[in-house]
Design a protein around this nucleic acid. Structure first.
Length: 478
RNA sequence: GUCCCCGUCGUCUAGAGGCCCAGGACGCUGGCCUUUCAAGCCGGUAACACGGGUUCGAAUCCCGUCGGGGACACCA
């Protein structure tokens, strides 16, 4: 392989970036990165009605959050630009003309209303999706100049087959008779997807087009276009779909989890989302926790499966916790801060202390959101003690132990987890009672509940002043 | 309806004719560890859709059936 691979992701800015799109982008990006290729971001904004600048920004933001960067595209002009289809309209028009001159396309003067009516009639009789354009305008010469028209492709009418060599699905073919004269250019001169896509993929010099399986059928008319132009089509790879819990294609309408940025809000790490998503349809032996670097090193299409996969939220959560545990605590801490602030906590300035907090909570939380939820008692002034917990661990006997701990704590030299653990242990030895009898009352007094990180780290993070204050409050309870 | 793709534990998957009476992971579950809750460690649960071939031998190849999904626009 001597040519440099060129791959692209070509979203249309008609909503947020969804999971399926993110994975398509990821696969293409990984392949480009692995083989030293170029990754292009092309914006297919030809749907005037639905494309919005907000959507474009949302997609750019989501790709940025995931760490998927591009070499050519918005903000990175290159030789093959512009990268917005609406800025390439002349190009499409010229190519449509070229096709007409060559006899591979023609103007069709049927109005949308006429087509709609015919479609309705046919489908009423034979069922949905049975309508095919009849080719009425193929040889029409009586149309007055300036009459509104679209440009249609002229499908070969005899018997024949288009063959797709797909990098993941293998060989697939389609009979000419299953295709019809598709519209290339609309009445307003704006290209349809199948046309703009082919022109751009060729002109932008794509060597490989990877996209979701929902596009396999549309690649046949595209292949016909390449042939009509005399162009060599890029390699093709169609990825399995990602299905929702109801086993239908993950869609924005039915599945809120299809929104990439929703996961940022719920406290999923980009590393984890990427990890989870790359494993939907691709694998590397038994590896489960895979870093971006490893993906770039290992990814290839021969291990992309052809079976659609179901979104599994439980596993996403598990993967996320793995990343919570293996990323640098300081990095996780920085990402945790907004979640803490959202809960109204006065977040510590001390970065090291925050990192310690992450170390204490990361084995207990699966998301940043959960982490923030269980961090309340580290930031509050005083604490509300759960009644059941108090009943169990703050009885008269326990209070005597607690008083003993308080004295030892106050006398303690430093205020570090290991030292504090030692203090608690010594009290248990001195009083000849089990650690549970000592640590639990302290835990309830300091956190208000029966579950928390190790007693030493809990005390350290709560802080000396707060810890003593809360123990006093517990001791003073009736 | 027509065309296209797909079919290994509930889910994600390993598996490219003998290494598989099928391996890993999530989940569920038993135990260990333990000051709590987690985490961790050890174990268990559970699958080659079905029926025919081909072959000495099939989860792997072929055919059929059934099942699931996708596509059928002057959307992308």
């Amino acid at each position: 392989m001597s040519t440099v691979p060129r791959l692209r992701f070509a979203p249309s800015p008609t909503g947020y970036l969804h999971i399926g799109g993110a994975r398509t982008a990821l696969f293409n990006w990984l392949y480009a990165r692995r083989y030293g290729g170029t990754f292009i971001l092309r914006i297919e904004d030809t749907d005037q009605g639905r494309s919005t600048p907000e959507s474009l920004q949302a997609i750019l933001d989501a790709l940025g959050w995931l760490g998927i960067d591009w070499d050519e595209g918005p903000g990175k002009e290159g030789k093959a630009g512009p990268y917005f289809q609406t800025k390439r309209l002349d190009t499409y028009r010229e190519h449509a003309e070229q096709l007409i001159r060559a006899g591979h396309a023609y103007r069709c003067y049927c109005t949308p209303e006429e087509i709609r009516a015919r479609r309705a009639a046919v489908e009423k009789a034979s069922g949905e999706g049975t309508y095919k354009y009849e080719g009425t305008c193929r040889n029409r010469t009586d149309a007055p100049a300036g009459m509104p028209s679209v440009v249609r492709f002229k499908m070969p009418s005899g018997p024949g087959t288009v063959v797709l060599q797909d990098k993941v699905l293998g060989t697939i073919s389609k009979e000419y008779s299953d295709l019809d004269d598709a519209v290339l250019l609309r009445g307003d001169g704006i290209p349809l997807y199948n046309f703009g896509c082919v022109i751009d993929d060729h002109l932008m010099d794509m060597t490989l087009v990877g996209r979701g399986q929902e596009h396999v059928n549309s690649t046949f008319p595209q292949l016909m276009l390449y042939r009509a132009f005399g162009w060599t089509p890029p390699e093709m790879a169609h990825f399995p779909l990602i299905l929702g819990p109801n086993r239908e294609k993950l869609s924005k309408r039915k599945h809120p989890e299809a929104d990439v940025m929703l996961h940022k809000q719920t406290g999923i790490l980009p590393e984890a989302l990427l990890n989870f998503v790359v494993r939907l349809g691709w694998s590397h032996g038994d590896d489960e926790v895979i870093s971006r670097e490893q993906m770039k090193e290992w990814f290839d299409f021969d291990h992309v499966g052809s079976v659609s996969g179901v979104w599994n939220p439980e596993k996403l959560l598990w993967v996320n916790q793995q990343w919570l545990k293996q990323l640098d605590p300081a990095v996780v801490a920085a990402r945790l801060v907004p979640f803490l602030e959202a809960k109204g906590f006065r977040v510590w300035e001390d970065g090291r202390r925050l990192a310690r907090l992450v170390e204490a909570l990361r084995a207990r939380a699966r998301t940043l959101q959960e982490m923030a939820e269980m961090a309340g008692y580290f930031f509050s002034d005083g604490v509300v003690v759960d009644e059941k917990a108090a009943q169990k661990h703050l009885g008269a006997e326990s209070k005597a132990v607690l008083a003993e701990v308080r004295a030892a704590l106050e006398a303690a030299g430093g205020w570090t987890a290991s030292g504090l653990d030692e203090v608690v242990k010594q009290v248990s030895e001195k009083l000849k009672v089990g650690m549970g009898k000592v640590a639990q009352p302290v835990r309830v007094a300091v956190t208000g509940n029966t579950a928390s990180p190790g007693i030493g780290e809990t005390l350290e993070l709560v802080g000396r002043e707060q810890a003593l204050k809360r123990i006093d409050a517990a001791l003073a309870r009736a």
